[in-house]
Structure formats: structure tokens, C-alpha cells
Simulated scan of single mutants.
Amino acid sequence: MSILVTGADGYLGWPTSIRIASRTNERVVLVDNFGRRDWVEEVGAVSATPVADIDTRLDAAEEALGLTNLSFVEGDLTDRAFVNELLQVHEPHTIVHAAAQPSAPYSQINGERANYTQENNMAATRNLVWGLHEHDLSDTHFIETTTTGVYGAPEFPIPEGGATMENGGERDEVPFPAMAGSWYHLSKSHDAANLRLANKQFGIPVSDVRTAIVYGAETDETARDDRLATRFDFDYYFGVVAHRFAAQAVAGYPITVYGRGEQRKPFVALEDAVEGLAQLALGDPDDRPDDVTVYNQVTRAISIVEIGTTIADVAGEFDLGTEVEHFENPREEDETHQMEIENDRYADLIGGQSVSFEDGIRNVLETLVENADTIRAHEDRFLPGVLEDRLADEAN
């Protein structure tokens, strides 16, 4: 028996893998097909922090952290034959499923990427749950990172679980409606529905971890050795808004906020995201859910303009002169939407937020300053067109 972590070469999957391995003597099996590396290269971007190859990472985990219980298997989870062999050989009692094409902007590029995103993400999840059923492993705890993006931007508080519907005087709890705003987010809505069906039909215990926007450059473990660093994307397609704003500050540009920027988005620090997944993976088997348990993996909602002003303030500590500038919003969105999202279950799981947004940004800027040459060499990957147009006008 073992613990299986899919997407283990990724931004969230790698630090989660070594956090879990550092707290157990069980075999932790890492699975990946290195897709994230390929997708980022495809859009002409690069990780700000050098990302070691998997063999170097495993060597560093043993040398720096003393971990001898990690194994790696390369393979594609959309291949049913591979998944069947993986489950037969390793018989996991827990799966942390972090493998997916995770970028909403990438899924919106064209129909080919939209199809790839949905086919890749949903096929991998279906193959895993059907494989568990067909190999008599239906008591395996299935932990999947979906996304808070499945909720969209409703005008009412988002529950941590289902929603209550009333019709004709009768009330019942139903799954939250899929209000996703991208082909990627909708793939995760479909995943959530498929997991509910897998629980109902096969009895697989499911923890649906709805991950917010994750920011941060390192965890306690990855900070121990440069070879253990997780990737840090800062481009438009794979870098989250906080990372892109930080890259603008390091490259000497203003922080670009579209419109008023008062709309709030859910965030969680990398450290707090990793801790929650580790807690679920290593929990008492007697406490694992019988049904589907939803966790809103978020520690706070932050407005876009507050993200920008916080980064600008912290940037001053690094002698980076930048400030927030507002530009006309090319998107159709509510610039004042005040998201409210419940997170009591997740907060209890991790014991409360451990990293403040300011401290997380401080660590991000520290990391990016050390890799400033890489940031500047790829500034065309994160500067919005509206800023490029203004700079061109000023130069003429």
C-alpha cells in the first residue's frame, strides 16, 4: 500500500509530495508526464526559478531532507492501460490528484486548447476512479484539487459544500451549480460531478479540495535546497495575478490594474495549500469521509487593487520603485464584486492561516529579485498589451 500523488512535478504537486513524504514512513509514489513544463514552453514562457529535473529533485530530497520513501513513475493518466498498471502495482490507500492542465487563459486560446484541457483533465480523473473500482480499491481516499473557479462570481456567500434549493415549499441541499467562466474551470466542474457519481456508484471516499488562487515561491521543505525549488510562473497564461504584478515590480514597470479593481478573489499561500493536502493525505483512515466532502482551500479574499498596492508597498523594501496604475478594463466584469466564501472546514484542517499575504509577497519578491535577469528577459510574457501600447507611445 502507498500514497499516490499525481501532478507531482508541478507547482503545487512537488512541494505537497515532499511534505507528505517527510511525515510518513510509507512509500509515496509520484506520478507525472511533465506536461506543465511543455505547456509553459509552448507559450514562450519560463519558470523564474530554475526547476531541476526529477532525478535531481529526488536526490536532493534524500540528501537535504533525508527522504528515502519517494518513488517516481512517468506516465500519462489519460492512458487507461498505464493507470491500470499503476494502481495494480502500487495499490494506493490514498490518492492526491493534482494533475491537470491548470490554466484558464491557456484553455481560452483556441478550440484545440479548450478540447485538450477538458479531455486531458476529465479523462485522467475518470481513469483513476474507474481504475480504483475495477481493481477493488474503492476504499481509497481520493483527494482532488478542483478550483474555486467552479463557483463563478455569485452575488451571495459561497458555501463550503452544497447549496440549499427551495421550490414549491420544499427544501433540499444540492451541489453548487456550475458557474465556471472558462473551459478549464468547467473541466473541474465536470470533475466534481464525476467524483460525486464515483462516490455514489463505487463508494469511493472523496475530498473535493476547491483550490483558490495559490501564490508563493517556496515552502519550508523547498527552501532547504535550491534543487528542491518548485516552479514559479509569472507569464500571462500560467502565472497568477499576484505573481504577474510582482514580476512587473521587479522589471521596473507600474502595476497594472484594470478598471477600479475592487473585485475580490480568493487566495491561499502555497504553504497553506500544501499543508491542507498533507493533512488530508495523512489523516486517520477512520476519519476519512464516507461521501464527498468539499473544502474551500482559501484563507482570505483580496481585491485586485489591494494586491497591487500591497506589492507596491512591499517592493519599497527591496528598493523597487513602482506604483499602481489603473487602465481601462478590456474585460466585461464587475469591478466591485465582493466575493464572500466560507472556509471554516479548511481553516480547521490547517489550524488557520499561517502566512499573511504581506509575508507571502515579501518572499515572492525576494525570490524574483534573485532571478531578475530571467524576469526582464521574458517581460513580453507578462506585460499587458495596454501597458506595452502606452510605453510605445511614450518612446515615439
Rank of each mutant, 00 (worst) to 15 (best):
E91D: 08
T125V: 13
T140I: 08
A163Y: 10
A81H: 11
E112H: 13
A100V: 09
R113T: 15
F176K: 02
L77Q: 02
P102K: 03
E166W: 04
L70S: 06
G152T: 11
D136S: 14
D139V: 09
D76V: 02
G149F: 11
P154V: 11
E160R: 04
F176W: 04
E91P: 00
E91G: 00
V96E: 06
H93A: 08
L87K: 01
F142D: 07
V150Y: 07
P159C: 12
I143Q: 03
F156I: 15
E173R: 10
A104G: 12
I143E: 04
L87P: 03
P102R: 04
M122W: 00
P102V: 14
H135R: 15
V174T: 13
M122L: 13
Y106V: 03
E85C: 02
I143T: 10
E170P: 00
E166S: 14
A64I: 01
R80H: 10
T78D: 03
N69Q: 07
A124V: 08
R126L: 10
E170I: 11
A123P: 00
L70Y: 02
P159Y: 13
E85W: 06
G161Y: 05
G66H: 04
R171F: 09
A104F: 01
T145K: 00
F176M: 07
I109W: 05
I95K: 01
G168L: 07
M179N: 14
N84K: 12
N115A: 14
P177S: 03
P157E: 15
L128F: 01
L128R: 01
V174G: 00
I95W: 00
E155K: 15
Y151H: 15
E112I: 12
H97A: 05
L137K: 05
G66V: 06
T117P: 06
E155Y: 12
H141F: 08
R57F: 09
I109T: 12
L77V: 07
E62P: 02
G169M: 09
G162N: 13
E134N: 13
G168F: 11
E63M: 05
G161V: 08
G131D: 00
S71L: 11
L67Q: 03
L86W: 05
H97Y: 04
Y151L: 07
P102G: 02
G168A: 07
Q118N: 12
A180L: 02
V89C: 03
T94K: 02
L87T: 00
D136C: 06
E144S: 13
P159T: 12
V150K: 01
E173V: 15
P154I: 10
N121D: 08
L70R: 05
P105M: 00
S107A: 14
Y106M: 05
T148N: 11
D59W: 04
A104H: 03
A99G: 12
F72N: 04
L65P: 10
R126P: 01
G131F: 00
T164G: 08
L67A: 04
A124S: 15
R113N: 14
D139G: 07
V129G: 01
E74C: 02
Q118L: 12
E85L: 07
H133Q: 14
D79I: 08
V96K: 00
D76M: 01
Y151I: 07
R126Q: 09
G66E: 06
H141K: 08
M165T: 12
V129L: 03
E119N: 14
Q101D: 11
H135Q: 15
T68Q: 11
